[in-house]
Design a protein around this nucleic acid. Structure first.
Lengths: 226, 226, 226, 226
DNA sequence: CTGTAAACGAGACGGTACGTCCTGTCTTTGA
DNA sequence: TCAAAGACAGGACGTACCGTCTCGTTTACAG
């Protein structure tokens, strides 16, 4: 029932968010699509102001100028609404085409870092606030993983592949693994730091970890390996 | 109010977990110390079965065969109880002395991995479920960081330093950063995988990321480097 | 607003139920008069099946094959609809001319009872269910009193007057009061009985109360009266 | 479950309202019996001020200084609460012993009328407001019939029996039926009058209906009866 | 025959009450 | 004095219904 009932954001890949809608006309009043946005906006605001627990469904409805029924007609539960609000809000997603080819891996990473900062910093933090709650719902959890993990890793991997094509990265490296290192370190650092990002951390990470790891020659396996 | 009221786990450094308690006799019934364990066990079970939201205080008390008041006499809130349950349960902590010196970084890491598996696998997973909630409480958050981040990174760093002393790791590497890579990748992988650890992932991580990163020669900085 | 909007039943005396309507033509689609009946029928059914609370406006519209707007275009509220449904349905009203002159009060009453049974039994019962709700609306309440109280008492009074003309009932009796006794007992009995009418109750009432009361000689007032 | 859970008023005959209660002691906080009264009082007030629909459960809890859970722990639904409030409030119930023996039926009735006015006038009116709603619940309906119908009829019957013993009322009269006439007329009159009682109505009823009916000689059955 | 106005079925809307559940506190009885 | 049991205030959740409004379609008069 739900895949069609709910707004499409959480259930489809973004590129085609609403699949051309109902081809045949249905009777009855149309849903006010503007309400979706109003509700999501209200949700996001309240999430930021008061946290997940303070984000009351009544408050959401109220601030969105909607009735609770309207909210529940579109999202089946508070968790799903919060999840959708966070996912949808990741306004732009970076793709490899957004990252300029600077001619070096190090340059590309620096460029990427600048783009990413502009795009989705605040959201990542808000996300942490609902992460554990969102995990209860397996479907939502999958979407979240897609949105917040795989997309980052994918972008990083594309950058690495470009560097490999350029000859910077030797063949035979486990790019999948290496692509995870950046995002992983970033989020682990935030974990260890109470959510804040230390000045200069990203640069240090790029210079001390990612670039060396990607560009150094493969170490020969020890003879009697394991 | 709390430092004395609550079991010591969350408020003191582990070495002296329960401060020998009151030696002199007080009037009245003694606290049943066994109840602490029953409550923590119940908490952990429910956390695993139903997640943080499903872990009701009533259910905890019920399963522990205790009254709610008993629970609240020992822990000041649900969050703290959940936090304590997770922290306390990390029965043993590894130190560098527990990791045998196999003569190679790769061997040490493999040994460490075997030890760690025995010790604290299940718990790390349960942790993910309460992470964000636990963050609300700054004191708890600090303990958690200590327990789940710094201790891992510290151990890893010690292993790296041993390898450096052995001559495997070149001087001048940012060991702090490199030590984070292992734990970060592990937890990020679990995040991306819904909590489960893919077969062979750790080995791949050791061979493709940590060992190369630690042992390869530093790459020369590009000429016009920032 | 309403007198013209709504079907005429509740606002006009029955004899001219729908005042020949607008002779001049207006543009636009005509109201489907058949829908009135469908809606009233649905209302009555649901009232009987589920009571006033269970009689949802959505359910009424649904069962009548109508939209809610259609219902609300014709009746301004749920109460009024329920009221109308009950009132309109009292298909025929008995008048003194319908009651054959059997030559005795007792015979006339028996005849009347047979007629009344045919006419409006089920409805009286449904009525009880909305009585108190209907009271909120003063206009509706007035109609209801007219329909369900005065009409019965009026008929009974006519029968009593015929008996008085016949010489059965002594002059000087308070016919107004006596005429109320029958209807009052009937409805009170239903109240006390959960809506059902005990077998033989009407006959007993006629023989033990109405006839004796109407025909006996007036009792002499006690000497030092009040 | 419910008979014991709820306060006893609606489920037991008043004389032994709470059946000696729990003989053995149970652990746990006792129910605050004062809350019962506070809640019932709040209910009654709100019922009077705003009617049944306006009597919100939240408002009741609020005014009673209680939580909604406390209300719902004691009454299973709004209807039951309203019902109980009305029934319990009939502070005193008249019995035949309260009606002085004036030596004549007419005098007894006048005395009874004075007593009844003092005791339960307002309540009868409030009752009308919930009657139809209360009817949905068969158990409550039965209690209401008991309280508001049978008790009145019973008292009236006792007065008639006393008059019969005195010789005022001939043997062989259908006292059950005659006892209903008074209450029936009264409530029917209120029905027809929008709830208000016309000045002098009761006296007229006593003199023109009840006394004549009870004291007149039985009319001979017509020969060829029906 | 075409335009326009109204009524139609469907169903979304704002609002609001209901009854359930959970947290953290308080009270009672027993050990 | 502490324990178990459980009642308490408060407040959020998700459901249901009322009366209104908006769609896109159908009907019927007007020109």
């Amino acid at each position: 029932m739900s895949a069609q009932e709910r707004p499409a954001e959480l259930t489809a890949e973004r590129p085609v968010p609403r699949p051309a809608a109902r081809p045949a006309a249905r009777p009855g009043r149309r849903r006010d699509e503007a309400k979706d946005d109003a509700i999501l906006a209200a949700t996001l605001e309240l999430l930021a102001e008061r946290g997940y627990d303070g984000m009351t469904m009544d408050a959401v409805a109220d601030r969105a100028g909607a009735g609770k029924a309207t909210v529940y007609r579109r999202w089946p539960s508070k968790v799903r609404l919060a999840a959708d609000a966070l996912v949808c809000n990741r306004s732009a997603r970076l793709s490899i085409d957004d990252v300029p080819d600077t001619g070096s891996l190090r340059g590309d990473l620096a460029a990427m870092r600048r783009l990413a900062t502009r795009v989705n910093n605040a959201n990542d933090d808000a996300l942490t606030g609902v992460w554990s709650i969102v995990q209860d719902d397996p479907e939502v959890a999958a979407i979240f993983r897609e949105q917040f993990v795989k997309s980052k890793v994918g972008l990083m991997r594309a950058v690495l592949e470009r560097a490999q094509a350029r000859g910077e990265v030797p063949a035979g490296r486990d790019l999948e693994m290496i692509a995870m290192v950046g995002p992983a370190l970033l989020s682990y650092h935030k974990l260890a730091n109470g959510g804040s990002l230390e000045e200069g951390f990203v640069e240090r990470m790029i210079d001390e970890v990612i670039v060396p790891l990607a560009t150094c020659a493969p170490v020969p396996e020890p003879a009697g390996s394991r």
